[in-house]
């Protein structure tokens, strides 16, 4: 649905803009023509893919989840994770991982949150301890223990969706913790919603389907895979397009603006007043 809307909406806008611009650069020579073509291509391929792949379930890429991978994952798991999660991932000090799915492991381990550095209000991001291959091995081992959300397919996380729809969904569902520009925010008792800048599309998607730390789960009935893709598209847009107004001041809103005007604005002006009224020696 959202695909059709985005296509129909973008068409007249593009055409209008092409006509409004100066005559020197119109049609396919227009600077935005490449972007428009690319966007259209992505929308159509994405749409076709979505239509063909029978909708809601996020399919894993055709990666061979061989027994060997799972065995490797099991070894890694028992060496690195079993202390808390139990030898068979049944849970010990930490929660049981049976049925959490590959997406959960890929998120937690892939962002460095697991293995956890220390007990605290929530697991902190740190440089990942495992290679991508090892993360996948762990993920498929855990996935083999019980059905759960899988690592999302590439077309859902590459930012090829409708940014406007994503922005609206983000404001309604995510901004109260993560801030409208994804700058992060505070939760209770030392917990926090992290900033989303620099987080890969795969990890954002996985976070939405698995609800890590204090985050709620946004399942496919709540926010459809296409809508999740749109949200990722919006976040990528915000990240790739710097603010047209200059430095963003961390996108933190009026507090950062107030600090700037008091410290640098009024600070520099007071320095100037001192200079103006200084007596020559």
């Amino acid at each position: 649905m959202s695909l059709d809307r985005s296509v129909t909406n973008s068409m007249p806008a593009n055409r209008k803009k092409l006509m409004n611009r100066s005559k020197r650069r119109t049609g396919r020579r227009h600077p935005l023509a490449t972007v428009a073509l690319l966007a259209l291509g992505l929308v159509f391929t994405g749409g076709a893919y979505a239509a063909l792949s029978s909708g809601s379930v996020a399919q894993a890429e055709a990666e061979p989840t061989s027994q060997e991978t799972i065995e490797e994952g099991k070894k890694l798991f028992q060496a690195n994770c079993a202390t808390c999660h139990g030898l068979d991932a049944q849970g010990n000090n930490g929660p049981s991982l049976i049925g959490v799915g590959a997406a959960s492991v890929d998120f937690q381990v892939g962002t460095g949150r697991m293995p956890m550095q220390m007990q605290g209000p929530q697991a902190q991001v740190k440089p990942p301890q495992f290679t991508d291959e090892q993360v996948k091995q762990l993920a498929y081992y855990v996935a083999s223990l019980g059905p759960g959300p899988d690592i999302p397919a590439d077309h859902l996380v590459n930012g090829g969706g409708d940014a406007a729809n994503g922005a609206e969904l983000f404001r309604i569902n995510c901004a109260m913790c993560h801030n409208v520009a994804g700058a992060g925010g505070a939760l209770t008792e030392g917990k926090f919603a992290p900033a989303l800048t620099g987080v890969s599309g795969v990890h954002i998607y996985e976070a939405m389907v698995t609800g890590p730390q204090n985050m709620p789960v946004f399942n496919d009935l709540n926010i459809s895979p296409e809508d999740k893709r749109d949200i990722i598209t919006y976040l990528k847009y915000v990240q790739d397009n710097r603010s047209p107004g200059g430095f963003e001041l961390g996108s933190l809103g009026p507090v950062a603006e107030g600090l700037l005007i008091w410290i640098f604005g009024l600070g520099s002006i007071v320095a100037i007043t001192v200079w103006i009224t200084a007596k020559s020696n």
Partner: peptide
Amino acid sequence: MFTINPIWNYGPYDPSPVSAGTQ
């Protein structure tokens, strides 16, 4: 040099959403 009140980030008013860091 510095962005102030980027309303394009905040989006149109709708009584349901509230952003973190609303001041």
